[in-house]
C-alpha cells in the first residue's frame, strides 16, 4: 500500500549548510499494518513520515500510496491526498491554541464545506471515544497534555483517513497517558487503518499488535 523507492532527502541542497536527512530509503508497508519507526533523534524518522504524508517532497526517489505517486503530485493534489487519506498526529500536536477542541477537530473538514449535522455527530462520537466530551468548548491551551493529545488524535480521525501517522506521540506524555495512547492505536488498527509511528519510546517495541519495527540510523534503514 505504501511504497518508498530509493528515497533521498537533502535539506539546503548545494548550500554550505547542506544536510542529508535520508539516503536511498526503500520501504513497503502493507494495508492495515502497524509499523514502528525507531531510532534516535536526528535519525530521519520525522523526515520520512513527512514525505509519506506528502508534507514535503523527496529530493530523489518516489513514494507510492495506493498506486498514486504522491511525491510527483501537484501542490493542490497533495493537499487533497492529505485531506482524504492521512491523519497526522504531530509530536507537539500542532493544535491552534486559541481555538476550542471542537474547532480544532473540525479543521481538516472545513475546506470540504461539510454538512453541519453530520459533522457535529461525527465530532461528538470522537469526543466520546476519547473521553473529552466535557472539553468540547474548552480552548485547547487550557487543556492538559493528555487532553490535547486526544484532541489531536480526534482531529486526525475526523476525515476517516486510511493512514494514521504519528510522530513521537508519547514524547510529552507520562507512562499512563502513553499506555492510553497505545490502546487507542490498537483500537484504530482494529478498524483496519494503516498506522505508522515514529518513536524512540521503548513502550512501543514489544507490542503484540505491531507488525513491523523499522530501525533508522543516520538517514538509513
Amino acid at each position: 500500500m505504501i511504497e518508498c523507492k530509493n528515497i533521498t532527502k537533502i535539506f539546503n541542497q548545494n548550500r554550505h549548510n547542506e544536510q542529508i536527512a535520508l539516503k536511498n530509503i526503500n520501504l513497503k508497508i502493507k494495508k492495515n499494518e502497524l509499523t514502528v519507526l525507531r531510532g534516535a533523534s536526528g535519525s530521519g524518522k520525522s523526515t520520512l513520515l513527512s514525505l509519506i504524508a506528502a508534507l514535503s517532497r523527496p529530493t530523489k526517489g518516489e513514494i507510492i500510496v495506493d498506486g498514486k505517486r504522491v511525491s510527483k503530485m501537484l501542490e493542490n493534489s497533495t493537499a487533497m491526498f492529505r485531506r482524504e487519506n492521512i491523519g497526522f498526529i504531530f509530536q507537539k500536536y500542532n493544535l491552534i491554541s486559541t481555538l476550542n477542541s471542537y474547532e480544532n477537530i473540525i479543521l481538516p473538514t472545513i475546506p470540504s464545506n461539510p454538512n453541519e449535522k453530520e459533522l457535529t455527530r461525527h465530532v461528538d462520537t470522537l469526543l466520546e471515544m476519547f473521553s473529552i466530551t466535557n472539553k468540547k468548548e474548552s480552548l485547547v491551551k487550557n487543556l492538559s497534555g493528555g487532553e490535547q493529545q486526544r484532541v489531536a488524535i480526534a482531529r486526525s480521525l475526523i476525515n476517516n483517513p486510511k493512514i494514521i501517522i504519528a510522530d513521537e506521540p508519547t514524547a510529552n506524555l507520562d507512562k499512563k497517558l502513553s499506555l492510553e495512547f497505545i490502546k487507542t492505536m490498537q483500537k484504530l488498527k482494529q478498524q483496519n487503518r494503516t498506522i505508522i509511528i515514529a518513536t524512540h519510546d521503548p513502550l512501543f517495541f514489544n507490542l503484540n499488535f505491531c507488525d513491523n519495527i523499522i530501525e533508522m540510523k543516520d538517514g538509513h534503514i
Binding site: A53, L55, A79, R82, F88, P108, I110, N159
Partner: peptide, 16 residues
Amino acid sequence: KREIGVLKALGWKIDD
C-alpha cells in the same frame, strides 16, 4: 505562519 503550515498539513489547499 505556523497556523498556515498546520492548515496545509491538515489538507487545506493554497486557495483555501
